[in-house]
Amino acid sequence: MSGFARGGFSLWLGATLAAALLMIAALSFVWTPYPPAAIDIPHKLAQPSLAHWFGTDSLGRDVASQLIAGARVSILVGVVAVGIGLVFGVALGLVAAFRKGVVEDSIMKACDFVFAFPALLSAIMLTSTFGPGVVNAIVAIGAANVPIIAKLTRATANSVLAREYALAARAAGRGPLAIAADHVLPNILPALIVQATIQFAIAILAEAALSYLGLGAQPPQPSWGRMLSDAQNVLYNAPRLAIYPGAAIALSVLGLNLLGDGLRDALDPRLRARS
């Protein structure tokens, strides 16, 4: 398709990496080489071999199995946190764009207020208040996504509502809900998809950071961030234990960011206008 051609190399590489991440996460539900949490002290800190592709950690757990199962948590956090951001963000942004006036101002000021706190810091605050765990981490990351999506939705929806076809729909007697569903959403979808992809990458990074700090995934749940924090204790004996999960995080984030950039090029309405 011409869209892929326009996105070019970054779209292909990004899509490949993101698809690999998804498939690994899906694979973890049916198969991992070993149970990821199975402790095997006699074989601790084993070098990579045919039996243990990436070796074992300080408790003898199979690193490959943990990496595969850790993808599941990353995807889960990314999907749900971005989902929360999209549902509330799009709703708030549309309300702001359609109602204007005081409603728009107060929604946007509330978004600015949430923006004023660094996202990771407020996530740390939330998880340390309501207890560590994946669910609270997801809620905290999702809450930080809401104002970003809300601002984007309002800005793009306003530009659609300023077009004559939106006025024509109003002149035809259509209500705000029908205009939002038939005109606004289809026309702002490309921008939302691009932003959601990038927020997905940020969510994976945030989950890793929270788990590294012990506020995200709890043992025995495998997570890339937790693997990093475990590896810290034996960093001088087995640096590879930090490198593997670090590389997994970096590749996933890189892939999603490339995908977002590629989609931006492929879906940009300014490039496809009147073609």
Binding site: Y165, A172, R174, A178, P186, N187
Partner: peptide, 20 residues
Amino acid sequence: YGSLDPRMRVEAIVAEPLAA
């Protein structure tokens, strides 16, 4: 060019006042 939604087919565009 501006008064017709580029993502809608002509049928949906023309029928819009009826849909309302």
